[in-house]
Computed example of a mutant assay.
Amino acid sequence: MSKIIFITGASKGFGRLWAEALLRRGDKVAATARNTDALKDLVTKYGENVLPLALDVNDRNSVFEAVNKAAKHFGEIDVLINNAGYGLFGTTEETTEAQARQQMETNFFGSLWVIQAILPIFRQQKSGYLIQISSVLGLTTLPLLGLYNASKFAVEGLVETVATETSGLGIHTTLIEPNGYATDWAGASAGQTSADITDYNSIRKAFAESGDNADNWGKPEATVQPVLNLIDNPNPPKRLLFGKVAYNLMHDVYSARLKEIEDWKEVSITAHGH
């Protein structure tokens, strides 16, 4: 049975790949982008099964209008893939106020506005599936991505809370947490802070060298079938890591965290006071 999917950031990267895969198998897609010209070929190929919508997720009113337009056009929305966002590269100290605010506006508040717009529809339907694209950097951090890390940590907390608030309303949620992939996220779509403080040059050099290892970057096409399977699963996970780097990294990170928790157990209990 075909589904109706609302996807933000559908003009490129994961959003574009997944939108086309869904359309190819017969689903209907409300595809959003800042510029809908990037979606014209999808309309040509898939006709009425795709609804292109111009959307800047930073504009809350525009978000509500787009979601409601999609629901009215298709009659319902089964799945939200909340995908819009970008990376901001540079040290925390060198990040300007404007850069920091814009990163949070798009990655966190943009996600929040879409979630707030979709939930009334899901509640009325008594069904719906919210898929939020987060990052493995919403669970642990890398240097030179401080504001991006922070935005994704915030998204993680937001969606986990929504999951607890809506668990009895027929609504499912999943946080997808990819490692780095060879998409536009680290290219033209990315922001960059200044690099004026020479004390950070060694960190910048090590970061650049790690990025040169092609094996660290996942293949975007490999995510298509996992996403389709996830959408079709009646009992989806709350979180799903994408990529072997993410899996291996988080296995080590959580093992170390659990050990530290146990090492400091007595101090933690003492601090309770009774």
Score class of each variant (00 low, 15 high):
S202L: 07
A190D: 12
T173Y: 14
P237F: 04
S210Y: 01
P178M: 08
L230K: 09
P226G: 07
N229L: 09
I176L: 15
Q192T: 11
P234D: 06
D232M: 03
N213T: 02
I231F: 13
P220M: 10
I203K: 08
A186T: 08
G218M: 06
N213W: 00
R204L: 09
K219D: 15
A208W: 01
L241F: 05
T198I: 10
E260A: 14
R204D: 05
G211T: 00
Q192M: 12
Y200E: 04
S255H: 09
T183M: 10
P237S: 07
G187V: 07
A190K: 09
S194V: 15
A206L: 05
P178R: 05
P234A: 06
P178E: 05
V224L: 09
P178V: 05
S210C: 00
N233H: 14
V253N: 05
I176D: 04
L230V: 11
D184A: 12
N201H: 12
T183D: 10
P236T: 05
Y247N: 09
Y247M: 11
S210I: 02
Y247R: 12
K219I: 14
R204N: 11
E221I: 07
L175R: 03
T174W: 00
R257D: 09
F207Y: 10
K205D: 08
N213P: 00
A222M: 04
K238Q: 14
L230E: 08
R239T: 08
I261D: 12
V224C: 03
A208F: 02
N216I: 07
P236S: 08
A188P: 09
L258F: 14
E177G: 02
G243S: 07
N235L: 13
V224N: 03
F242P: 00
D184F: 05
W217N: 02
T183H: 10
L175G: 01
T174D: 03
S255P: 00
G187H: 06
T193L: 01
A256H: 11
N248I: 03
P220C: 11
W217A: 07
P226M: 04
T173I: 12
P234W: 06
L240Q: 11
H251S: 04
A206D: 06
Y254V: 04
Q225Y: 01
S194H: 11
E221R: 03
Q225C: 00
G211M: 04
T173M: 10
G180L: 12
H251D: 04
N179L: 05
A186D: 09
P236Y: 02
V224Q: 03
A256G: 04
N216H: 14
L241E: 02
D252C: 05
T193C: 02
I261S: 10
K219S: 08
N235Q: 15
A186L: 13
R204Y: 15
G218R: 02
A188Q: 14
N213V: 09
P220W: 09
I197V: 15
V245M: 03
L258A: 11
V224W: 00
Q192Y: 11
E177H: 03
R257Q: 14
T223H: 01
A246C: 05
I203L: 14
H251P: 00
F207L: 06
K219L: 10
